[in-house]
């Protein structure tokens, strides 16, 4: 089995049942190293469930998940983050009442091992501020460092979330609908950001907005009712008659 080397993430016969309802049915997914892989499909297709299985927030009923050829099917969610897989959430996931800077310091302090010292002064964390500011600068949030995060506009929160994720320098980034609920301008910003992020990383994203998918992804997997309907690059997938049928009349047809 030599092909393991090229797959960053692989699932084999991944299935998830909720009380008899088969939400994910026998999904075989291969995410190649260095690619932006998109997972699309109509509402209720099981995208988010697959996502939660991959990030270990749900346990699969059957099947295997391999990260760089290593079986992570039974790993805990906090463990996979340590191994190099970090996820984002559908609803912007920040720490709302911490400052923007503190949001980025939280992942950095875990890497630095500054997490259990309850007897140390908070000044110990200042050593990480330089690195945190650099990261913020990278997404243009350096000026907002001391703002309480809840006061940021939505697009900036999303950018903050992505840069918080980057603080862990993950090999594989899992993005759950990164442009959901955004206006055009913010979408463009986030697309550009993902593009930059993906330069030296592998990205798997769930995304509704097909124009975002077409601009970003190298490879697309279409899910329908829990199973893989089609897979390939954007042209292959968008010309697939089954995919067209699945989307016809759907809310996504016009954005394609």
């Amino acid at each position: 089995m030599t092909e393991h080397g090229e797959y960053m993430l692989e699932t084999r016969n991944l299935s998830k049942e909720f009380r008899g309802f088969l939400a994910v049915d026998d999904v075989n997914l291969q995410v190649r190293k260095g690619e932006i892989h998109a997972l699309i499909g109509p509402n209720g297709a099981g995208k988010t469930t697959v996502f939660n299985l991959l990030t270990k927030f749900h346990m699969p009923s059957r099947g295997q998940i391999l990260f760089k050829g290593r079986d992570i099917t039974r790993a805990k969610p906090s463990d996979i983050a340590r191994q190099g897989i970090v996820r984002s959430f559908q609803i912007s996931a920040v720490f709302p009442h911490l400052t923007v800077l503190e949001n980025v310091v939280v992942p950095l302090q875990r890497k630095a091992g500054l997490t259990t010292q309850f007897w140390r002064s908070g000044k110990a964390l200042e050593a990480l501020h330089g690195q945190a500011r650099e990261l913020l600068d990278w997404v243009g949030l350096a000026d907002m460092a001391d703002t309480v995060t809840v006061e940021l506009p939505y697009g900036s929160k999303r950018a903050l979330e992505i840069v918080t994720t980057l603080a862990l320098d993950p090999e594989l980034l899992l993005l759950d609908e990164p442009t959901q609920g955004m206006g055009h301008e913010d979408v463009d910003k986030v697309v550009e950001l993902i593009h930059r992020v993906a330069a030296d990383r592998t990205v798997l994203m769930v995304e509704h907005n097909l124009s975002v998918v077409s601009r970003l992804s190298n490879r697309i997997t279409v899910l329908q009712r829990g199973s893989v309907l089609a897979e390939g690059d954007y042209d292959t997938v968008s010309n697939n008659p089954e995919v067209k049928a699945a989307y016809i009349g759907g809310q996504h047809a016009e954005s394609a």
Partner: peptide, 13 residues
Amino acid sequence: SPFGQVLKAVREN
């Protein structure tokens, strides 16, 4: 402390 910051993060999200 650094630990307190982690606690706040857990509380927040």
